[in-house]
């Protein structure tokens, strides 16, 4: 955050895209992420096979020209299941990040602007949430509200709140003593308005990078919860549950576990790489350290 000039800080950098695309991590990440997003989007209109029917005769077929990724224990096409499952993973991760941002960022900004006891309360609240191993709490949340995609979103979203609150607060705290902020205050602008007009735009890049990382963590967390049977419920396919079902079929059809696992890895890897690349591009100081 070596930026000083408010005008330049706030204005979008026209070179960002070019620089981002020149960044190898970002480019690879972008391609992988787009592949997953496209697979999910395509599944709204077309999948190689339907995924609702049960066809016992065709079960546990190895990968072939007809079924690229083989079939599962109900005879369903695994490629089709993965495509539809992508929607679930993306939706859960996206909404969870949204919850984290919408609740966490205002909280962090508010704490930074007001300081004092409010700041202390928000930060201690964060400590309490952080003290709970996330997965354990998610298991408890789904035990209370019942398993399902919506409750998985809530469980994951809650743990995004303190993450974004911290990032927003730290970013804002670093900006408040800046000259141009002090100047704005001297000019009589209120704290709320300064936060809206000067702080938020200037921490946006931090939030975007964190958002990408939380998105990929969200995909992993969703997979973990569905693996434990607490995520999206059948017949809606989810990558984690496909793995849970595949686990007992390993002796008969290892491909049933292989492909959903690879899908998770590609999605997480894609968004992680994108986040890393973005950080390099948007945060020159960190880049120098690398």
């Amino acid at each position: 955050m070596a930026m000083l000039d408010p005008a330049r800080e706030a204005a979008p950098d026209p070179g960002v895209w070019r620089r981002a695309l020149a960044n190898r991590s970002f480019l690879i990440g972008l391609i992988l992420s787009i592949a997953i997003l496209l697979a999910g989007a395509l599944s709204f209109f077309w999948t190689p096979y339907g995924i609702s029917g049960v066809n016992v005769a065709a079960r546990l077929q190895a990968p072939s020209a007809a079924h690229w990724f083989g079939t599962d224990h109900f005879g369903r096409d695994i490629l089709s299941m993965i495509m539809v499952g992508a929607r679930n993973s993306i939706a859960v991760a996206l909404v969870a990040v949204g919850i984290g941002m919408l609740a966490g960022v205002p909280l962090g900004l508010w704490a930074a602007a007001r300081g004092g006891w409010l700041d202390a309360v928000v930060m201690r609240g964060n400590d309490v949430v952080f003290a709970f191993p996330a997965l354990l709490s998610a298991v408890m949340i789904t035990a209370v509200f019942g398993p399902g995609a919506v409750n998985a979103i809530i469980a994951i979203g809650i743990f995004n709140v303190p993450v974004f609150a911290r990032v927003a607060r730290a970013g804002a705290m670093a900006l408040w003593p800046r000259d141009y902020i002090l100047a704005a205050r001297a000019a009589g602008k209120g704290k709320g308005r300064i936060t809206r007009e000067h702080i938020l735009p200037n921490i946006m890049h931090l939030l975007i990078v964190q958002g990408t990382i939380q998105f990929s963590l969200g995909i992993l967390a969703e997979a973990g919860l569905s693996y434990l049977g607490l995520g999206a419920q059948p017949p809606a396919p989810s990558w984690g549950r496909m793995l849970a079902e595949a686990q007992t079929m390993m002796a008969l059809g290892p491909h049933t576990a292989l492909f959903p696992g690879l899908a998770i890895i590609i999605a997480v890897l894609g968004f992680n790489l994108m986040g890393d690349g973005l950080r390099d591009v948007l945060d020159p100081k960190l880049k120098a350290a690398r």
Partner: peptide, 14 residues
């Protein structure tokens, strides 16, 4: 990078 992306339960199954 890949290692970070691998879900540990999938790795365990494999």
């Amino acid at each position: 990078q890949i290692g970070v992306a691998v879900p540990n339960f999938w790795f365990a199954i494999i």
